[in-house]
């Protein structure tokens, strides 16, 4: 190894954002406070239990459901199951792939495309990972898979569902029934982003781990579960990892692209 590398003991910094859907999280002393921004409703996680706070009793059912889901993410963490903001898809060989990325990066669209190619779906906006011996396993986090109905030119079957698009949703999303999976061994991570040109590149474990922390920010809750959570992400980051920059042209070829990427 050359001196130039030894002289480059660099550190790069990123803030963790605790936000999922309409819910923000913050630490309140020894407890975690979950706040639904729009409803101004709070739930606390105390001693592994969810305790309602101000505004909760009068909050709309949708806000309460969102708070409960984030509460479930925190509680499952205490049982060794770690939520990752990623789509999970199982290929015809029974192997799970995690497609992680920020909101709007195309996770749901690619998951839907994969389902049309015979893959089964663990979740389109989140999966749980757990360690099982030497394996990293992905478990389902089922919620309706929502696809933008504006993609009807690529996926003609969406035309029959346009009327069901959520009102006031700029992406005009509709929920679609897809074949589901319950759990599978994870074989690869794919960090997806929309781009002008298609490319798939290999990521090293450091880049993969940093990206996973970003998509599993609950790892940084200051409690006894932080280290096992971080270790699970570290083990996942050791798997083959890729950055997939995709364009609309890849909507029909993503299954082949992924299968060709894995040796």
């Amino acid at each position: 190894m050359g001196g130039a590398r030894a002289a480059a003991g660099r550190v790069s910094v990123s803030p963790v954002v605790w936000r999922w859907g309409g819910v923000d999280a913050s630490e309140d002393g020894e407890h975690l406070c979950l706040m639904h921004r729009q409803a101004d409703a709070r739930v606390f996680v105390r001693g592994g239990r969810l305790v309602s706070g101000s505004g909760y009793e009068n909050a709309a059912p949708k806000a309460r459901r969102e708070l409960a889901r984030v509460g479930a993410i925190v509680r499952l963490r205490q049982r060794g199951r770690y939520f990752v903001h990623a789509a999970g898809a199982v290929d015809p060989q029974g192997r799970a792939w995690l497609l992680a990325g920020d909101s709007g990066s195309g996770k749901s669209t690619l998951a839907y495309s994969l389902s049309r190619s015979g893959w089964t779906i663990l979740g389109d906006d989140g999966v749980l990972i757990e360690l099982a011996g030497s394996e990293v396993r992905a478990c389902a986090w089922h919620a309706p898979l929502e696809v933008s109905s504006t993609l009807a030119s690529a996926f003609p079957e969406l035309r029959a569902h346009v009327a069901r698009a959520r009102p006031n949703d700029p992406r005009r999303r509709v929920s679609m029934n897809v074949p589901l999976a319950s759990r599978a061994r994870v074989v690869a991570l794919v960090f997806v982003e929309r781009a002008e040109c298609h490319a798939i590149t290999t990521l090293g474990p450091l880049a993969a781990l940093g990206a996973l922390v970003r998509q599993s920010p609950w790892v940084i809750i200051d409690d006894a579960y932080a280290c096992p959570h971080l270790d699970a992400l570290r083990r996942a980051a050791a798997l083959p990892s890729f950055r997939l920059e995709h364009t609309p042209a890849e909507l029909h070829t993503v299954a082949r692209i992924l299968m060709e990427a894995l040796p």
Binding site: A7, R10, V11, S12, V13, S14, L206, D231, L233
Partner: peptide, 28 residues
Amino acid sequence: DAACAAVDDGAVLLHMRTKRYYSLNETG
């Protein structure tokens, strides 16, 4: 307050109080 996870090409540090995470390259 720092938690570290080492991988083949570096390490990620979490600062549990400031809620920031850091990447260290291999030498770091």
